[in-house]
Design a protein around this nucleic acid. Structure first.
Lengths: 241, 241
DNA sequence: CGCATGGTTGATCATGCTCAATTTAAGTGG
DNA sequence: CCACTTAAATTGAGCATGATCAACCATGCG
């Protein structure tokens, strides 16, 4: 647990806060609560658990920085990434994600996390939390469709579009480019593929000029027509063309 | 829209009500509200939509009888069943399932549906709704794991276990047997497989004595060891061995 | 009886998997 | 700065699960 000294003093510039603002208007009360909560920011190393399987009560959390993933394991060790946790995302907020022996979450990169202030009934913050939860649902449904009815290259494209969208909400995505600090293995576990096949499919997409992938930075050749092809509908109005 | 004349006068025996009770204690107020709501029961034919894609505001609904499915379509007509709607399930309740151009729901069998009474803040009914929503989430995560990391026969087995569990909550499942009024095509769209392959896998499971499938009635040979093999953890305490 | 829906079968194809090895990149400590 | 270590990306060859296409039954119902 560290002080908030290294967090920006101006809340507005913080990606997480930017996302919350974009989900709904925040009043002074909300800002005060958030500022207070960010006093209790703490860091997490990659591969550390965010929430543990089966732990009954967890404080709701707000992700300030870094990427995480909700994962589940089968008895024989197969792993499924249920979804990703990005800056501005809320974990275990309200009823969402109560970890009843069903899923855990891990850090994929170094993360900074703060406890999420609990919203007063009827408050602006509460409405924003609701909006966030609604988006969570949308992403789960998108994940199901990807896994159930899309081919490898479609799954990758669709997931990248989701990343772009979600990062945009936090102001972390450029016009076509955005960071994806995730290994091909994690990608594979998210997309229901093997790492080898993810690799080959990525090469294909790169050869076709659909994507560029340098280090952690991805650029989409033509997000709009890609979204068209995949029938990808942005979840949040602000991210619609 | 029809009267409630053909609904049981004794709420307790109604599968939907049974499920709600099992999710949490209901007080007289709740029963009164439910009784009133069931006055407005209406029927739905198979293949009729329950909620339409993109419709903004929908009244929350309670399923009294019959099976439905939440589905999504890709541009080229591919269909994904996102999840099933069983007696006692709530649709569009609270924040859940707001249909923002993202998913629709159809009746798989003849259904009886009533508007869900909206719960007073802090009421017993509200807690039950919350429990129901929590379960909805669990089923979505289960669906993701099935589609992402399970083989055909595992997907089928796991889904059947889910059906057994959920029907048990409504008192609609026997020890090992329960109704599954769903075509192999729908099953395929839920499991990310082709109808042909579902058919062949079912034959395999039948030959091995794992399942019996007669008409709409399924019997599992040994649910417990099946659940063990698949690492299937029941979502609700009441359905744990 | 005839049509429609759902289940069943066969033959062939292909997407994606497995296994195993090699290369590249990124640290890390001397 | 370079050996040494480790995680990640890449390549190859062969295999298999599940897809595709196309009939063909079974059943129920008007």
């Amino acid at each position: 647990m560290i002080g908030a000294a290294d967090r920006p003093l101006h809340l507005w510039s913080d990606p997480a806060i930017q996302r919350l603002i974009r989900l709904g208007p925040l009043d002074d009360q909300a800002f005060a609560a958030l500022r207070a909560a960010m006093t209790r920011t703490y860091r997490l190393k990659p591969r550390r658990d965010i929430i543990h399987e089966g732990r009954e009560i967890t404080e709701p959390l707000l992700i300030l920085e870094g990427w995480g993933a909700r994962v589940r394991f089968l008895p024989d060790g197969r792993r499924q990434v249920l979804g990703f946790l990005l800056p501005g995302d809320l974990i275990g907020c309200g009823r969402n994600e109560r970890p009843l022996a069903t899923a855990m979450a891990t850090a994929l990169t170094p993360m900074q996390i703060a406890p999420a202030p609990l919203p007063a009934p009827g408050s602006a913050l509460e409405k924003v939390y609701a909006a966030s939860r609604a988006l969570d649902d949308v992403y789960l449904l998108a994940q199901i469709t990807r896994l159930g009815r899309m081919h490898a290259w479609e799954r990758i494209g669709d997931l990248l579009l989701e990343f772009r969208e979600r990062l945009s909400l936090a102001g972390l995505a450029g016009a076509n480019g955005f960071p994806v600090p995730v290994t091909q293995e994690v990608l594979a576990d998210a997309l229901g593929l093997t790492p080898v096949h993810v690799n080959r499919t990525l090469q294909l997409l790169r050869r076709q000029g659909d994507i560029t992938w340098k280090g952690d930075h991805v650029t989409l050749g033509d997000p709009t027509t890609l979204a068209m092809q995949l029938g990808h509908v942005p979840a949040h109005p602000a991210t619609r063309p």
